[in-house]
Design a protein around this nucleic acid. Sequence first.
RNA 1: CGGGCUGUGGCGCAGUUUGGUAGCGCGCUGCGUUCGGGACGCAGAGGUCGCAGGUUCAAAUCCUGUCAGCCCGACCA
Length: 611
Amino acid sequence: MPTPTKQRSRSRPSTAEPTTDLGTTSRWGGAHLRGRDGRGLAWGTMRMSQLLLKTLRDDPSDTDSAGYALLVRAGYVRRLAAGVYTFLPLGLRVLQQVSGIVRTELDRAGMQEVLLPALSPIELWHASGRSARFGTDAMPALTVDGRGGTFVLGPTHEEVATVTVAQEVESYRQLPVTIYQIQTKFRDEARPRYGLVRTRELIMCDAYSFDADASAMAESYDRAVAAYRAIFERVGLEVTPVVAQSGAIGGEVNHEFMVPSPIGEDHFARCSSCGYSANTEAALRRAPAAQEAVMAEVVEVATPGAASMDEVLTALGHLDIPLSHMLKTIAVRTAEGAVAVISVPGDREVRLPHEWDLLSDEEVAAHPGLVKGSMGPQGMAAHGVRVVVDDAVVARPGPWVAGGNTEGVHVTGLHLGRDFFADETGSFVEVVTGDGCPTCGQPLELVRSVEAAHTFQLGLQYTSKMSGATYLDEAGVEQQLWMGCYGIGVSRLLGVLAEAHHDDQGLCWPEGIAPYDLHLVTLGANRNPAIAEAAEQLVADLEAAGFSVLYDDRDASPGVKFADADLLGIPRRLLVGGKGLERGIVELKDRRTGDERELELTHAAQLLGSS
RNA sequence: CGGGCUGUGGCGCAGUUUGGUAGCGCGCUGCGUUCGGGACGCAGAGGUCGCAGGUUCAAAUCCUGUCAGCCCGACCA
């Protein structure tokens, strides 16, 4: 239920007649004339005969998901360009509902709302070092050249937030402080998809905390995470915060907030028995059970031209070796800068730890001992290359098939501990459903999901580079600010919500998210003035009771009105028609369940308010 | 950024193979009949066929280029 403010006067008659008194519900009496109750949406009534809305019977051709197709068909959003959307009145109302919830929860957590500029001078990005990444895929930012120089259309706001707080904060007495904003961000997305889920222009809520030291930063972080959980709870989405990186390097903490969804572009691993969860880049799995080694001799086999696992398998076809007994070996640079090879079973994908990078073809070619397409872990010590092997290789020491470290040659019968030696072992494969949970050993499952929010403990990453991001401590000593940042995709949430709440007929918004509380439909009002009068009176009663109402006063056929009501997805539909009016009742239908109920017309507003 | 496909009234599409001057459904406007789950009749409005060149007596149709969009992949703060 909404928590309507009941301070509006009851003495505001609703009438279909045009009037010069803008204080009444005139024929122009849209919500925009009626004020807001501080936080939630404007209450009052929107007449569909006045609403900027056109519903579509068919799916537009460019829709790629059910929720997005319905948002377009129901007239909530329109696409202007790839990944760029217009919010029409209904869509904006939903957006405002979601941002209202975000605001309430963040304010409650002690954060303070600001509005940072979308445009920021590129010098700021030079200072943080992030401009160097603009040309890469790592940070596809958009820039504009103006008279004042080059500006970045903000993809995120760590720099601006840091500068802003640095200007205002001078003393430990002012800490901690967390600011947030709800604002449009710009990202030069390579491939926009799924309507509002992956866009080039997006509405995001981003928060930035500043603290005196690491432990205070961690406290702010925990508060932000708790606030984010509360937000997801209120919008009715299941969320799992997952560890986003292995944390092996640098101790940087960060979590992705994953919402399971059919339109998810990510997967995360989840253990239903102990609650372990991590995204696929960070997820570990328990070492497989040890197997007895079957000793075999090392044999070189010619595999001309075979570089990929499949090609090698084909070249060795006569030996009948399963993919899982082949070693996939790739060359990498570790976070410390050392060259290493990682060997995993051939039927698994390598998981690179945080800040480890694949060696480029040129680097491989330049390194003696590394042969692209024929790499193996044996004999690497002689070339100063570290050998990292996955636990599965430890569990089953041999025999393995690997590259022969010579062009066109592979080797069979390799054994760990005899023919090659591990400098480091661990979980280096991407987990798959059925792998053992690293903490409890029960099977993990992979869940398709959307990243709906992301939180970071940034530490001194920005504040150490941006000048003036310091404060004086109790001893009068200058200290650097410890920073955290927290982003939640507000417009993306809309896309996820539409995907999560719909059926074959249309959208089914949850209460508190829907653009209006009630959808009032009349049937036959143009032929029977009594129906129009009854509906007008009901609208007035509902308004007085604090409800926002979408009033279908159009002269349209019943089928059209019903179909539109289902499509728009407002939780409860009220129907005033000839049949019911004879008995003095109005019919109430729940959009989601389809349950119908009759209410006494004269007390309907009261009954709805107390139910 | 690679590979594939598609651009024709507001929306969804046919027409392109075999060049002959644009059509269907929905929507829209007017009038009338209807009216409790996307009604019907009659009369209308609306398109330089993405754009630019070229071939031809003639181009939505053939050729070249270009732009945009979609799908698969790569990538993803």
